[in-house]
Amino acid sequence: MENCNMKRGFFFLRDCDHPAHQSCASCGKAFCNEHLRIKPGASAPFCLDCLGKTMQQTNQNKDKKVSTRDDYYDDYYYDTAWCYGYRSNYYTSGSYKPWYFGTVDADGSEFNDQDIRVFEPSAEIEDPDAEAFDPDANVFDS
């Protein structure tokens, strides 16, 4: 399964570890549900990077009073989605270049929550096919 193509973070970018669910209608890359949003009136989802860029533009082009009347804008502005627009603007307008940690965890050799999560005792496989185990199977195996 493909992993989500989004990079999380603001000062530091790192790969999103979630499995991808759908493709962005604008850039075509695959993302996880956390990093996709459906715009009002659109049927296909946009990734937060693409959405962020269009929202930043809308914000600059439109008269502020017009855009603030939009409930969708409220939802966007006070949501994590806003950070993606803000950061793309921040990276392009200023001199800041984010640190990229890539697949390696930010804290060096240490593991992140995505890694740790799968090691919960509940995630331990007792038997991958406990239910599929058929006592009568393999009778003719030899």
Binding site: D15, T103, D115, V118, I125
Partner: peptide, 22 residues
């Protein structure tokens, strides 16, 4: 570990492999 924890991602395995390699 992947035989014990099915949902381990390739990335997590890579990290563990990096530790082993060191």
């Amino acid at each position: 570990l992947p035989t014990r924890y099915a949902s381990i991602s390739g990335r997590t395995c890579d990290k563990i492999r990096t530790l082993e390699q060191r």
